[in-house]
Amino acid sequence: MIFTIACKELKTLFASPLAWTLLALMQLVLAWIFLWRLDAFLEIQSQLLQIANPPGVTEIIVAPLFAMAAVVLLMATPLLTMRLIAEERRNHTMTFLISAPISMTDIVLGKFIGLIIFFCSVIVLAAVLSLSLLAGGTLDVGLLLSNAAGLLLICACFTSLGLYISCLTAQPAIAAAGTLGALLGLWVVDIAADDADSIMRNFSLLKHYENFNRGMIDTFDLAYFALFILTFLVLAIRRLDGERLRG
C-alpha cells in the first residue's frame, strides 16, 4: 500500500512540468558549480603538486558540489512538499485516500517515500556529474558515497518537515512559505551557532551535514537525522488522525 501511494505520488509529480523544471534547473546550477570548481582545481593543480599531502580532486570539486547541492535542495524542497497534503485537500482528493482501506501511516509514509525517490534521482545526477571526473583521474569513492548518503539524509529531513507543514494547511502556497521559513530558520541557527560550544549548534541541520561532507559519518549525526525525520513523520500522522476526530 505504501508503495502504491509512492508510485502515485511519482506519477502525478512527473505528470506536471514542475518536477521536470526543477530537475533541469537544479542540474544547471550543479553543473555550473561543478565547472567552476573544476576550473579552480586546474588553476591550482601545479601548486598542489608541491604540497606533501595535497587534497585530492574529490575534496576540491565533489565536496563543495554536494555542499552547494544541499542549499539548492533546501530551496527546492518546499516547492515539492507543498503539494503533498495541502493540494490533496484543496482538490478534495484527500477523501479518496482516507476512504480507502489504508491507514494514515500508509498515506504519510507513501508520500514521503515517493518524494525521497524523486530526490534520489537528483542525487544520482549529482553523483554522475562527479563520476565524470573518472575520465581524467581517480576519485575518492568513499568520500563521494559519504556525501551522497549525507545529501539523501538531509533531503529526507527537509521532506519530513515539509510534509508536516503541508498537513497543517489547505493552501499549498502557505505550506511552501512555511516550509521555506522553517528550513531557513534552521540555516540561520547554523550561522548563529558559529562559536564552537554553543548548544544551538546541535540543532542545526547543515552543521550535521558538514560532517558527511568531510567524509565523516558520525553516529551522533545519524541519530540526529533519524530523530528529526521520525519526529516530523509522527507529527504528520498524528495531525491527520486528529483531523478525523475533530473534523
Binding site: 500500500m1 502504491t4 501511494i5 502515485k8 506519477k11 502525478t12 505528470a15 506536471s16 482538490n91 478534495h92 482528493t93 484527500m94 477523501t95 479518496f96 485516500l97 476512504s99 480507502a100 482501506p101 489504508i102
Partner: peptide
C-alpha cells in the same frame, strides 16, 4: 465500502485508466 463524495475526488493529471487502477490497488 465504495464512496463518492459530493465533489468527485479526481486527480486531474492522471488518465482514467491510471486513476481507476490506483483506486483498485488501494482497495486491495
Amino acid at each position: 465500502i465504495g464512496y463518492l463524495p459530493e465533489t468527485p475526488p479526481l486527480y486531474r493529471d492522471l488518465t482514467v485508466d491510471e486513476y481507476l487502477q490506483l483506486a483498485a490497488r488501494l482497495h486491495r
